[in-house]
């Protein structure tokens, strides 16, 4: 029984996956809605990744869509440009897809590392501006590269992303983020957010951890970009403008910076609800923007600021039994 309680979250995730699949098979959930759900998962990964840098490490990066673009194009490079995997036998296609996602993540994280190393010494808003510029430079550069379709975009990407992969990678992103945050790596990042001088004085190489969190987040965003490209089957550089980065900023701070739960809730809700409001046509974004302003005025720390679902909280490792000191209850 205790075991089941422990694994409750995993069971819920599996059940949710089964329910959505069954609804879809029964025709109660059309492919349009299924696509929205998958986009919500991808947006959740993006928001969680931005949370690592902005929410937990306290840096102010606002060009996350740039990493998504790099990941998307890099993974499409393997499935579409270098190899035409659609013509491969079925058993070889999926491993190649996963490999291409990893390459997307890797490419984004390498660029993240190279960008992070010199720029993370900039403080606060200047870092924000450099990251914004970085995102725009990525977009402008892709427009210049004819090899990947230039401004017209890259079409013909095979549709490998499905509900299963979205579920798996969204789960992995959340699980990875939780474990990162609740480890000495994440705690070092939090200490940088809280007080950089004190952090350095406690023996923490702040530059190293800033670059680490930036690179880690870039990896996640790169994988999300790969999933995105293989879902829409088309990539266009202008999709990844700073407006897209702004969307993720909004998701992050509306949900609550420094709360993984907040990123999950806002990634899902803020993707799905505006789609539900399509019938309002042009007024949809007007209402969205008003709700956003009101939310931030009412709860400046975001919906889940300072809160976390139980599953995402650090594990209590010891209990203090009277004055007998602590004992391990692993």
């Amino acid at each position: 029984m205790n075991y089941l309680k422990d694994k409750k979250v995993y069971i819920i995730i599996v059940l949710l996956y089964i329910i959505i699949t069954v609804l879809n098979k029964l025709g109660l959930l059309n492919s349009y809605l299924l696509q929205i759900i998958m986009l919500a998962g991808i947006n959740t990964i993006m928001t969680v990744s931005l949370n690592i840098v902005n929410g937990f490490t306290g840096q102010f990066s606002i060009g996350q869509a740039g990493f998504m673009a790099i990941g998307g194009y890099a993974s499409a490079l393997f499935t579409t440009i270098l190899f035409n995997t659609s013509s491969w036998p079925a058993y070889a296609q999926i491993p190649m897809f996963i490999f291409s996602l990893m390459m997307g993540g890797l490419a984004a994280s390498i660029i993240g590392f190279l960008i992070g190393l010199p720029t993370l010494r900039l403080k606060g808003d200047y870092l924000a501006i450099v990251t914004l510029s970085f995102g725009e430079v990525v977009r402008a550069s892709i427009r210049l590269i004819d090899y990947v379709g230039g401004p017209r975009g890259l079409a013909g990407i095979p549709r490998y992303t499905n509900l299963f992969w979205v579920f798996l990678f969204t789960f992995l992103a959340i699980y990875g983020a939780r474990n990162f945050v609740n480890s000495s790596f994440g705690r070092a990042c939090i200490s940088i957010r809280e007080n950089e001088v004190a952090s350095e004085t406690m023996g923490i190489d702040t530059t190293k951890y800033k670059v680490l969190s930036f690179t880690f987040a870039a990896f996640m965003a790169g994988v999300a970009g790969g999933l995105f490209g293989h879902l829409l089957m088309f990539l266009q550089p202008d999709t990844f403008s700073f407006l897209k980065s702004n969307d993720y900023l909004v998701f992050l701070y509306a949900g609550g910076a420094g709360s993984i739960s907040g990123s999950i809730v806002s990634g899902l809700v803020l993707t799905i609800v505006p789609e539900m409001l399509r019938f309002m046509a042009n007024w949809r974004i007007v209402i969205y923007s008003l709700v956003l302003v009101m939310l931030m005025l009412k709860r400046p720390e975001g919906l889940y600021g300072g809160k976390e679902f139980k599953w995402l909280k650090p594990k209590k490792r010891t209990v203090i039994a009277g004055n007998k000191g602590a004992e391990i209850t692993n």
Binding site: S183, S184, I190, M202
Partner: peptide, 30 residues
């Protein structure tokens, strides 16, 4: 200059960072 929004326990754990010996992979997969 404490780490204000971290718990008292985490403040201490943070200061122990130098003595913690495990890699990122070990942390991510517990």
């Amino acid at each position: 200059r404490l780490f204000n929004n971290a718990t008292v326990l985490d403040n201490i754990k943070i200061a122990f960072t130098l003595q913690v010996k495990y890699g990122l992979g070990e942390a991510l997969f517990r």
